[in-house]
Amino acid sequence: MARQPEGPPPPPTVQKLRLRYAKRGPLRFASHRDLARALERALRRARVPMAFSAGFSPHPKISYVGAAPTGAASEAEYVEIGLAERRDPEEVRAALDASLPPGVDVLECVEATEGTGSLADRIDAARWRVELPGVSPAELAAAVAAFLAADVVTVEKRTKNGLRDVDARAAVTGASAGEEAGCAILHMVVRQVTPAVRPDDVLAALVAVADLRPPSPPRAVREAQGRLDDCGTVADPLGPDRVAGTRCQGEPAAV
């Protein structure tokens, strides 16, 4: 029995905006659900004229693309919103950023250009940086070398359907060991696969190949997301909109 609410249908979407935002500092412990709730409230607080779905409980038009796991920080989270009235993207960015708690920072906002494809289609890989406090850079370098040398590194992963074996090696297109202020840093590019391979899985793989066991929990930051090009770098997913659009906001994603 499909009953419809009385009154006129909600106004249609007249503008789509694509946002890049970061979760930083202690707010890396926010889950995707936490962030989604916070974003919806911030949109209201910032009085962004959202378009809504029809029905008894109308939802604002928001679509999320691949959220970083709870506990991982990110400089490159993406979301697309539908507006019922046109707005200047930079004004929306600033208002939204001011309405979100510090640590969830809106970095870029561009208008989606028709005909350039969906945001989800422009993301198939992510670049990660993982700090490993207490691990020596040399140790990490050796572990990474062992990992890259292997054809397959199977790790056990907890999924919705229980424990599963996944090949962590296949998803990693590049990895290197670095160092900053004496702390070992793992840099890597990981492709989107199903089930997902996350930094934790790669770290589990380093235990498997080299018995690398960090004394305290590593800190992962997703530095970029986008399409993997032939040179193994991750392209800016907002690039096509920016090129097609009339103006270009903020600094481009550091890729």
């Binding site: 202690p26 707010l27 889950s31 936490d34 708690p101």
Partner: peptide
């Protein structure tokens, strides 16, 4: 997340 504060 419940231990980090930073609420609006």
């Amino acid at each position: 997340i419940q231990y980090v504060g930073g609420e609006l």
